[in-house]
Amino acid sequence: MRFIPFAGALFAAALAATTATSAVAATWPARQINLVVPFSAGGGVDNVARVLASGLAKELKQSVVVENRTGAGGLIGGKYVADAAPDGYTLLMGTQTTLAVAPLLHPDAGLDPLKAYAGISKVGSSPLLLVANPGFPAKTVRDLVALAKKEPGKINYGSGGVGTTPHMAMALLALDAGIRMTHVPYKGEQPALTDTIGNQISLMFSNLPVSLPLVRSGRLRALAVSSAARVPTAPDIPTVAESGIAGFEAGTWFAVVAPKGTPPAVVQTLNHAIGRALSDPKLRSTLQNQGVTVQAGSAADLDKYIESEYRKWARVVQQAHISIK
């Protein structure tokens, strides 16, 4: 009998928490929501964010404004959101760069994505295309691995800079294949593509929407796509995994996160709204035309995915000795 008052207190507390959660869900959102993009306007991440913002505003019946806060590989915008009030009104359009790679390369920034954010929903992903100059002797990933093992360090590959997704994807491929190549970082993807076409460097991973037209025109040769499955826009191009690097998968992914501590009811409301927005055929078509495969999911699944990506790229950074210095 002594435990009845305590049990009653627990029930009362649970009821109060449920009531408070319901109240939050019923009144949120009451004002404008800011979706922070940690990269410049007009880029791939910004384009995805703006498409999603319009659909999210329609679902929530509230303004959703895209705000660009650039710098430090996305860390400035990322830190801004991490330090914001956890009320659901400040969100981050995150990627593997901001939520995994950049914090690993800039440990002094003091941003731990596993502690700083609450996952809301994954939005989608965009594969990379492994392309080479048409005169490069390797025509497949198996050829590339054999050649690199024969001539360690002699094959030069480009990227848009240290820590970019194409750079990290090639570093992952090299680790998994047990080969060594030489990285040539550029200030942006386009100069690297230009030099691949001009045979100044041999090959590179590139964002598929950018490089596929160059493959179709014969200016570059495609070796493989970086996704786990072949892509509908290029079904004739094999994946890296089916070309001999089992389990390989890399690419640009997009996800919405909020500051850690955001009320579960708000997280759930946002997750459901994003899911509904991404199910709209017109919105899906717009994203697909940008090379994005739509991939919505639960908040819990996103938290697990971010952690797995963080661990994955931490291994690459450590074992490939990647540094911005």
Score class of each variant (00 low, 15 high):
Glu249Leu: 00
Thr18Val: 08
Glu67Gln: 15
Gly124Met: 13
Pro232Gly: 10
Gly158Pro: 14
Val215Ser: 01
Ser159Met: 05
Ala116Trp: 12
Ala20Ile: 02
Pro38Cys: 04
Gln319Val: 05
Met181Asp: 04
Ala9Cys: 10
Pro263Ile: 12
Ala146Asp: 14
Gly135Thr: 13
Ile120Arg: 12
Lys149Trp: 01
Val267Tyr: 07
Thr252Asp: 05
Pro107Phe: 08
Trp28Leu: 07
Ser279Glu: 15
Gln96Leu: 05
Val51Gly: 00
Ile274Lys: 03
Thr27Val: 12
Ser285Cys: 01
Met170Glu: 10
Lys122Cys: 09
Thr98Val: 11
Lys325Arg: 14
Gly78Phe: 09
Thr194Asp: 13
Ile322Ala: 07
Val123Cys: 12
Tyr80Ala: 07
Met168Trp: 05
Val294Asp: 11
Ser202Leu: 01
Asn68Val: 05
Gly71Pro: 09
Gln32Asn: 09
Thr27Gln: 15
Ala7Asp: 02
Gly153Glu: 08
Gly163Trp: 06
Ser22Leu: 12
Leu220Gln: 10
Pro235Arg: 12
Val81Ala: 01
Ala177Arg: 10
Ala14Gly: 10
Gly71Lys: 09
Leu15Asn: 03
Val66Asn: 11
Pro238Ile: 04
Thr19Tyr: 09
Gly71Ser: 08
Tyr310Gln: 10
Ala100Asn: 10
Gly158Phe: 06
Lys304Pro: 01
Val37Arg: 01
Gly251Thr: 06
Tyr310Phe: 15
Lys58Glu: 14
Leu92Asn: 04
Asn34Cys: 02
Ser126Leu: 07
Ile237Ala: 02
Ala234Glu: 04
Arg50Phe: 03
Ala222Cys: 08
Thr98Asn: 12
Asn271Met: 06
